[in-house]
Every structure is written in structure tokens, then in C-alpha cells.
Simulated assay, not measured.
Amino acid sequence: MGRITARRPVTRITLGTQPVRRPDTLAVEEPLEIRVGGASLAITMRTPGNDVELAGGFLVSEGVIAAGGQFHSAIHCGGPGAGGPIAGAAENTYNVLDVTLAQGVAAPDPDLARTFYTTSSCGLCGKASIEAVQTVSSYDVAVDAVDVAAEVLVTFPDLLRAAQAVFDKTGGLHAAGLFDAATGELVVLREDVGRHNAVDKVVGWGVLNDRLPLSGHVLMVSGRASFELVQKAVMAGIPILAAVSAPSSLAVELAAAQGLTLVGFLRGDSMNVYTRPDRIRVGAGDRAALSAS
């Protein structure tokens, strides 16, 4: 498996002192080609590790699969012509992953195949409209009766940050965590240079453990809430998405259309709830007022 971190020399400059040359730890970023049945589907830039989860989550986001039983297996490919940083490399570079779907599951539409490199921040840019998500999602998050206490929700950013082991070393990774809404327990956390990849790895964990839909959970992300992250939550059946930063306008539109609770600026003891505030439990009187607003 490829390295998650790498050491590189850096010149540290602090005003009033002499520059110091020292090693620094960086988050590794490498390409991963995802194949299905030997056919190339996508190439994304990611932090190596949990690649099978990444592929599983990606396939859920794209509507190729919707349950763990539809994902059979995956294997890293190697050898001449297999791809990787150097085409024709004899060794297994662990940068090509071939997924086998379960028997009877249709192969991806050839139109889904990506013939270009997506960047770490681009994510799944192909889904350009709310209608596209509405037509392919297998789960209706609007009917999920989950709620979460506000005093529990405000603890999630610190719990997420405390579990970011690789971020502590590099300062260069996004994180996504899945929390049990009833208990506040952090169920799974994944880190990646791409925030979309981090979410795909969390969803892929659900695929490999046959946990989809991920109802009754909160998806917490370390950055902003984009349209693509709302899309991924909806596709995985996650009813609540919380972010430490701002959502985009299209993210709010999609969340409203799908009945997903979208929380932004979750910091300290406050938050902004953009959609479905009735799921945030802040006391009987306040919750009733929110439901009526």
C-alpha cells in the first residue's frame, strides 16, 4: 500500500531569527484509477489508504450501486500497462483498483467513464443538477425520523478533530466522520487530501459493512458543505450533514429539495441550520417553534 505521509525538506522562516532547514511531514497525494470489471471508470487524486472504501463510496455517489450486497470485491492491479505514476511499471503501484460487482448488478453506463483527472477539490462534478440526484437516489432521507440534541451536535467538531491522526502530522488533510445521532458516538472517520474522497471513504465503509442506508446518522465534515457533499449524503441515505464552515447556495437548495438537514458554521456552542431544523433538538418549546418556522 502506498504511503499516507512523506518527508520533505523545508526552510522555516520566522521574523527576527535565522532561517532553519528541517524535514517536514506532508500528506501524500497520488492518482487512483477506479476500474469496474476491467473497464476504466474514473481517475481521482487521493491520499492512499482505504482505497476499496473510496471506490465503494464513489460507486454509491454515482448511482452504480446502492447496497453492500451489490459490491463483490476489489483488487489493486499491477504490472506492465497497469497504470500508476509510471506507465508500464513492473511493480504493483497500488494506484489502480479493479472492482467486481455482484452477479446480476449492471455495469456502469459507459457515459459515466471519466477520461480525465479530477482534482482533489473537484469531486463529482458530473452531477450538475438537483434533478439528476432526485432521479437516481435509492433512499428518501426526508422520511428519516432521526433527531439529534443540539448539545450533542456541538461536540462533533472537537471529536472529529481529536481523531485526525494524520492531520496532526501534516496539517493537510480533510476529514469526514459518521456519528450515531442517538448516542453521539463517532462510528467511523476517514481522512484524505480531497474532502469528497474523505466522504466517499466513509460511505464506502458503509458499503463494505453492508450498512446502507446510513439512516439515523450525522455526517460531519471538516470544511465547507458543497453541493457534491449533500449529494453524497443523500445517495447514502444520511439524513443530517454538518460542516464547520459554510454551505453553498446549491447545497442548500439540494438539501431542501431532498429533505436533508444541513448544518453549517458548527463551531463552539452555535450553528446555522439551513434546512429541516426540526431534527435539531433544543428543548420542547424551541423545537416546536423551529418546526413551525
Rank of each mutant, 00 (worst) to 15 (best):
R195K: 11
L219H: 00
N272Y: 12
M271N: 06
H196K: 09
P247Y: 10
R279W: 13
P213C: 02
D210I: 06
N197W: 02
L208M: 09
V252T: 14
A182W: 03
V221N: 12
E191L: 06
E185Q: 14
M271V: 10
A251T: 09
V188T: 03
E253F: 09
N209V: 03
N272E: 13
V187S: 13
V207L: 00
Q258V: 12
Q231R: 15
E253P: 02
R267S: 13
M271W: 13
R276E: 09
A242K: 02
R224L: 12
A181Q: 02
A236N: 05
L260V: 07
H217E: 01
L208S: 00
G206M: 03
S249D: 13
L262H: 11
P277W: 03
Q258M: 12
G204I: 00
V203H: 02
P277Y: 06
T183N: 05
V230S: 00
Q231D: 14
G223L: 06
D269M: 01
V263D: 01
N272K: 10
G216Q: 09
H217G: 05
R224N: 14
G237L: 06
I280N: 00
P277N: 09
G194S: 15
V221S: 02
I238K: 05
S215W: 05
A225P: 12
A233F: 10
K232E: 13
S226Q: 05
A198C: 12
L189T: 00
R195Q: 14
L189W: 01
A243F: 02
G194V: 10
P213S: 04
Q258H: 10
S226L: 12
L212R: 15
I280Q: 02
S249R: 14
L208Q: 14
N197F: 08
G264T: 02
R195F: 07
I238T: 07
A257H: 10
R267H: 11
A255G: 10
W205I: 01
A198E: 11
R195W: 07
D192A: 05
V234S: 11
L266H: 07
T275L: 04
P239F: 05
E191W: 11
M235Q: 15
Q231H: 13
V218R: 11
M220L: 15
I240K: 03
L254W: 08
S226K: 04
G194M: 04
Q231P: 04
T275W: 02
A225M: 15
L262C: 01
G184N: 09
R195I: 14
